Simulated assay, not measured.
Amino acid sequence: MASTLAPAKVNLFLHVGAPDASGYHPLCSLMTFADYGDVVTIAEAEAVDLVIDGPFAAELSSDDDNLVLRAARALIAEARRPVPVVGFRLEKRLPVASGLGGGSGDAGAALRLMRETLRLPIDDARLEAVAASLGADGAACLWARPTLAEGYGERLSPAPALPVLDAVLVNPGVAVSTPEVYRRLDASGAFGSVERPPMPEAIETPQEAAAWLSVLRNDLEAPAVAVAPAVGAVLETLRAEPETLLARVSGSGGTCFALCASDIEAEGLAERLEAMAPDWWVRRCRLGGPWA
């Protein structure tokens, strides 16, 4: 039996272009990962199966469409050899449909665990190809380290050198449909440039990171707020708090993040938010990784 963290993914910025003839949107995004997330465990089993527990277990199904099982079966096919039968346990600690890459992160964790525990002779490139086949965030979430994603999410390059960032994640408890967010974006026509923005070689402080990110954006933020106004309420609250250096939606919502100057500020902000809005999911974390 072995376990690993499937860290929450946070889009520090996310630029989305107009869809191509196939309906896919090009993008440019700086992704980083938190020291908090779901936990995936692998163990010998009689069949490839999945047990889900944790605070958000009721919102997920363990049927064949779950990304953990899809990842396992895809890797078995890629191995092209008999593979010992394993089962998985998923402790679902992240909200579902929350813009934190939970499903892709869980799949990535399952792939890493299988390759390591079963000693499969599959190199990084082949493992990454399997992860990419499972979704746009798949390859980035496999390694769970800061990365710049371009194209349709498949072109990955190292992120600028960033300090570890103290942050607070906040979700109002509303699942946000990614397809609906993209439909709103398409209807608005408010597409951004997906050319790589000027990148500093290194960012030394949280204040520098927030200042640089403030001139960038998340093009899915406005449609996410339109789909789920509660996300807008979270953003408005975060941006009014003194500890917040920058507040933004992650991915297609509905989780927002606030960057803070230090762990003391992040702790104070998280505690106050928990008292102000006890129905919100609030987690203090550190962004940067890799934590997996």
Rank of each mutant, 00 (worst) to 15 (best):
E243H: 07
V234A: 09
P198Y: 04
A209L: 08
M199F: 00
G253L: 09
V215T: 10
P200L: 01
T255A: 00
T237F: 04
A233C: 09
L245G: 10
I203M: 04
A209I: 05
V227G: 01
R217D: 14
A258G: 15
G254D: 04
V215F: 05
G253Y: 10
G192H: 02
M199H: 01
L259H: 13
E201K: 07
P242N: 11
E195M: 08
A247T: 11
D219H: 02
S262L: 04
E241C: 14
P200M: 00
F257A: 00
A226D: 01
E265F: 11
F257L: 01
F257P: 13
L246S: 12
L213N: 08
V225N: 12
V227Q: 13
S252G: 02
E243Y: 07
L220A: 12
S250I: 00
L216G: 00
L235C: 07
S250P: 03
P200C: 00
L235W: 03
D219A: 08
E221P: 05
R239Y: 00
A240W: 04
V225Q: 08
P242W: 08
F191Q: 09
L220S: 12
G192F: 00
V194C: 09
D263P: 01
N218K: 11
E204C: 11
A211F: 11
W212C: 03
C256Y: 13
R239A: 06
E243L: 09
A261F: 01
G253T: 07
A210R: 15
S214Q: 13
S193D: 12
T255I: 01
I203A: 09
A222F: 06
P223V: 08
T244M: 00
A247P: 11
P197A: 08
C260N: 09
A224Q: 12
D219S: 03
L259N: 07
A202M: 06
V231I: 09
G251F: 05
P197R: 10
V227S: 12
E195S: 14
S250Y: 10
I203D: 02
